[in-house]
Structure formats: structure tokens, C-alpha cells
């Protein structure tokens, strides 16, 4: 169940929309940031708010890139694999990340902290290679930069 205040925000957004459906992505995104991912139950809950059947919502959830229908780690790393990043060494950085986090593409690290997913061009080609972790962009990636980012996130996780 959603905390009352989040639910209230969602209901307000929905009330403000021309048609509830219009808010489907926002509702799922907000619920996802609360739950971590959209479980079947969360989908049904969201459908209830939006006057949509779970199927109708699933049609959207599975279309898009940033709605997670399976459990993900605390940090979701989307590493860009499009042209410019590819040209600038995406592949070796990906290798590095996999080793560092002990995951394969699509997997979650054994400590449950990191999920590694591909993403297409992030619009940061001027800072390629790039990745995005929980909405924060990291550009001009090198192995060293990746090491320090991951290190920081790990510390952050252990601190809380």
C-alpha cells in the first residue's frame, strides 16, 4: 500500500489531467520510486487509481524503458550503448563494470545494490561515454571515474 501522501499526490495529478490515462507513466514512475519496481500488485494498484485495467497499464509499462517490472537493485545503472559511446569505448567500460559489480548485463549484483541495464543514446554524446544511475548522469566515463562513482555509491548505501 502506498503512503497516504504519495497516494494523495497521485490522485491530484490524475484529477488535474484531461483523462486519467494521461498520467499513467507519471503514476508508475512515482510508485516505482517508492516501491523500487512495479510488482504485479503495484500494477493493479496503479490501474485502480488510473481507471485502467492491469493489462492496459502493462501495455505501457512493457513498452517503455524506465519502468521496471522485476525487482532491481538500489541503483540501476543504464549504460549507453549507442553510436558515439560505442565509438568511445563503451564495450571495454561495460566489461569493467561487469567485473567490478560481478554482474552480467541485465543482472543485479550479489549484494543487491546494482542492476546493470543497457540504454540507448542518453543525449550526452558531447560527454560520451555516458551512463545514468537513478536519474543522475555520469559523462566522460573512464575506468577510474567508474571506480570512484561505484565506490561512492557503495559507501552511500552502507552509510544509510
Amino acid at each position: 500500500m502506498l503512503p497516504a501522501e504519495i497516494k494523495e499526490t497521485l490522485l491530484q495529478r490524475i484529477a488535474h489531467a484531461i483523462h486519467p490515462r494521461e498520467q499513467a507513466i507519471d503514476v508508475m514512475t512515482i510508485m516505482q520510486s517508492h516501491y523500487g519496481y512495479m510488482s504485479d500488485e503495484a500494477m493493479e494498484e496503479a490501474g485502480g487509481l488510473l481507471d485502467m485495467t492491469p493489462l492496459e497499464l502493462e501495455e505501457l509499462a512493457t513498452f517503455y524503458n524506465f519502468i521496471y517490472r522485476r525487482p532491481v537493485g538500489r541503483y540501476v545503472l543504464h549504460i549507453c550503448d549507442s553510436t558515439v559511446c560505442w565509438m568511445n569505448g563503451h564495450e571495454s567500460l561495460l566489461q569493467h563494470l561487469c567485473t567490478l559489480l560481478q554482474v552480467e548485463m541485465g543482472g543485479t549484483s550479489p549484494d543487491g545494490l546494482f542492476t546493470l541495464l543497457p540504454v540507448c543514446c542518453l543525449g550526452y554524446c558531447d560527454h560520451s561515454p555516458a551512463m545514468i544511475i537513478n536519474q543522475v548522469i555520469y559523462g566522460d566515463l573512464t575506468r577510474e571515474k567508474i571506480d570512484s562513482v561505484i565506490h561512492k555509491l557503495r559507501e552511500q548505501a552502507h552509510a544509510s
Partner: peptide, 19 residues
């Protein structure tokens, strides 16, 4: 009716139910 439709994207598009 609202319990069967297209899911997923690209060459993985699937026609079925939520469950």
C-alpha cells in the same frame, strides 16, 4: 473488452493478458 492486448515493444511484441 479490456483484458487482452499488445504488450512489449519491437520484435518482442506479445499479444495476451496481464496474467
Amino acid at each position: 473488452y479490456r483484458d487482452l492486448g499488445p504488450l512489449q515493444i519491437a520484435d518482442r511484441v506479445y499479444f495476451g493478458r496481464f496474467k
